[in-house]
Design a protein around this nucleic acid. Structure first.
Lengths: 298, 298
DNA sequence: AGGTGTCCTTGCATGAATGCACAGCTTGCC
DNA sequence: GGCAAGCTGTGCATTCATGCAAGGACACCT
């Protein structure tokens, strides 16, 4: 057996420091004390007999041999992650943790009630909601399930379209009273950033050249901004209709909706607890979205 | 960060058990207590949520998911070994351990005196001699330096031919007195196994169809067998000439010698301590082999 | 110049990992 | 059938890795 490197786990610590650029940052990402990281890195350098990092006042920077090491350790990490997916995919226990990621809007308003009901029948499964407006990486197991809007999923992800989110224009009652008139181009608007490109494009199409008074990467934040009277916003009916302090200002000239997908990684689809969550949420979300559509149908 | 597998080093323990086929065997190869291995494997299976091994009375056998895991972990081990070679190759310290492997004959009689002198000038470097009659793998860092007879080295190994071992036929004085006569075919012979194919082939060529009375994988053992009077043996002059209780029986019809190589891995050639050992031994062995040739030169 | 925040490094106490010793089971040999 | 050897599994004592707390250094801002 290899006598030189007797603890492969030191490489995991090395990787964290390389990525964080500091002991403290690595400690935070690893969930350990910074003094532990200090000793682990020092021990690894002693064992290998080389300096992996230069010590700077602002943190740790990779040396050239550290750069070479990083390249190899990233391959190791890829293998560890693949292993993790492979064996987790065969985990038949209906217990443990399932991590779901969704943008804040969906996480706040679509998931909690469903997950409460899910827990009634699967008390052994803990669900962790990861709220984020950046797409987490399922291949790296940053999350187990993703609730995503918009595009068709990447090839390695599997799942179903659980429904469609219809969008309409909403504003606060006070704002609308103070800004009567049907000319949308004369109104103030709440916009989005590049993380919500479909919404941004739709607004641009609706009102060419319109410049929003305020923008956000968070749809939940946009809802709040609208409620605060900063302007009109293009919001999903399923969420906005739940808000008595938001009123639908106008229909879009043509119907605009985005697909909502429930996704996991190909290797995890057979993991019992992940499968259980997917099988519960798919019909539940579909039912929710069916009820919450724009306006009464004739 | 990967929350599922928080200790990569458990994979190193898994690998040892997979290869040894038992907790006890893995404990021996890892140099830890078997109860430690027991707990590490149990912990890994708990973390991953799968059974990696079937428990048998005779040891541990891989389950199907264990087989899949083994495939991935072997890739990880290859990366760890490559990393080890890469960084060890840049280790500039003249301290630490250098491992040399050689067959027993060479290890016993060629290395000790040279290494004693080496230590006089490099007291910080510890040398470990790994005696074995199987070729250890330098790519996997089972050894740092190999002293090898015979073939030109594989492409990834670098080193020099330090000399040539001349061979001649030797026997014990008592045996020779009791078996006078020049007909070698009538003599008893001590042979070798497939680990010493060049010697076996040479004997076969010398005496076609000859079947040795006894065979061994160890040249050192063959020397002892010859001294014990079990027959004649084809032995290297550099070693046999040192033995007053072996006499040279006859010259070979044509000179027969094998090259002796001092080799290391391409990635390790710049490791300071390995380089120091090579630079000392190369001329020292060459000098030794120059002195020990068959018979006095005219 | 002083205050704040971030960083690294180290000594000491604590808890987790490990080794030790033991027990039990199975297999193979005589 | 008895014995030896190999194996797994567990309780308790020991060792070592880790966290805590403290100190020092540096950069940035006022």
């Amino acid at each position: 057996m290899n006598a030189q490197l007797a603890n492969w786990d030191d490489l995991r610590v090395f990787l964290a420091v390389a990525r964080a650029g500091s002991l403290s940052g690595a400690a935070r990402s690893l969930g350990v004390n910074h003094s532990t990281v200090f000793r682990r890195v020092a021990g690894l350098e002693e064992t290998l007999g080389v300096r992996l990092f230069d010590r700077l006042p602002t943190g740790y920077a990779l040396t050239p041999v550290g750069e070479e090491t990083l390249g190899i350790v990233e391959r190791i990490e890829d293998d560890v992650t693949a292993l993790d997916r492979t064996v987790t995919g065969q985990d038949l226990r209906l217990s443990g943790t399932v991590r779901i990621t969704a943008i804040d809007m969906l996480a706040f308003w679509l998931l909690p009630d469903h997950l409460r009901r899910f827990r009634e029948t699967h008390s052994g499964i803990e669900v962790e909601i990861v709220v984020g407006n950046e797409a987490l990486n399922l291949s790296r197991r940053e999350t187990d399930i993703a609730l995503r809007i918009g595009n068709t999923p990447p090839e390695t992800l599997v799942g179903r379209k659980v429904g469609q989110l219809e969008f309409a224009i909403y504003g606060a009652p006070d704002y609308c009273a103070a800004h009567p008139g049907a000319d949308l181009a004369q109104q103030d608007w709440i916009g989005f950033d590049s993380a919500h490109a479909p919404l941004t494009r739709q607004l641009e199409k609706l009102l060419p050249g319109m410049r929003p008074a305020v923008r956000s990467n968070s749809v939940a934040c946009a809802v709040r901004l609208a409620k605060a009277g900063l302007g009109l916003a293009l919001l999903p009916c399923a969420i906005a209709e739940l808000k008595p302090d938001l009123i639908r200002v106008a229909e879009l000239p043509e119907s605009f909706g985005l697909d909502l997908w429930l996704l996991t990684h190909e290797d995890l689809r057979h993991t019992a607890r992940i499968r259980a969550v997917l099988e519960f949420l798919t019909p539940a979300l579909a039912e929710s979205l069916k009820k919450c559509t724009k306006g009464p149908e004739i």
